[in-house]
Design a binder for these strands. Structure first.
Lengths: 129, 129
DNA sequence: TGAACAAGTAACCAAATGGTTAGTGTTGTG
DNA sequence: CACAACACTAACCATTTGGTTACTTGTTCA
């Protein structure tokens, strides 16, 4: 591994600067959150979904967390929120271009980690105490 | 984006299987945890560190979280823990080969996300309410 | 004799996280 | 005329998370 690159990233992530807000860590943490990740993935698959659709697709999510996660994704520019002021109201969610980029990275990450998982599971089983 | 691949990952991540334990999500979540990530990075930079060294390098971490994170990393096979039964006791931590692989991926991920951060920060500022 | 050291561990506590349930307002349907 | 549909929001509460502080253990050094 390239030491210079590691050192650079350590600086970028502000490991030695206590108390500082690090936007890189922040953006990463938010996009890699359990529910957020799932929402990006289902929006990647279905392209356009209404609130209730996402709720059905992401099994187990509560309306509270769904709203919260969608707002964060919207705020960070990963998701479009389009409101149709009909009655009953209709709201459609979809990935932005930036959201698509993140989707791609998430899929890559999951695909990359997949073959490592059996080894790790084995390592866990052998770990006593 | 390749729809087949997204569909495959959605299946791998068990989005539609409620209550199931998904090892991929699990392994990802543990390695991407705030403190765990920092520990992998400082071990990548310094190669071998004692408990107190890691504590100094990862500014702000409490001994409780340090122990917990190191145990998880050891359990998952990312970190070696070598005990020298001297007095006072000496314990050295270093990355395993697998840990080095994860380090590389973490650095790649951070490096990749870095140029996206200013756009996201701007998007946040423009987001009202 | 007793303080210091290393690598934790134990006990306690505050804060954050997130689930559940009920409610909002309007309109089309049985 | 009551109820379902939709996209949330508010209030409440249980659980989880993680920080702080003090303690352990055996030997060496002052």
């Amino acid at each position: 591994m390239n030491d210079k690159k590691v050192k650079q990233i350590l600086e970028d992530l502000d490991v030695e600067n206590p108390g500082e807000v690090c936007p890189i860590k922040d953006v990463l943490a938010e996009v890699l959150d359990k529910w957020t990740m799932m929402i990006i993935l289902v929006l990647g698959k279905h392209k356009v979904l209404r609130f209730a659709d996402v709720r059905r697709s992401v099994v187990g999510i509560s309306p509270k967390m769904l709203t919260k996660s969608l707002r964060t994704l919207e705020r960070d520019g990963h998701v479009n929120r389009k409101v149709y002021p009909e009655v009953p109201i209709r709201v459609e969610y979809s990935l932005t271009e930036q959201g698509e980029v993140f989707l791609k990275k998430l899929v890559d990450l999951a695909a990359w980690i997949k073959p490592h998982v059996p080894t790790i599971v084995k390592s866990r089983e052998q770990f006593i105490k």
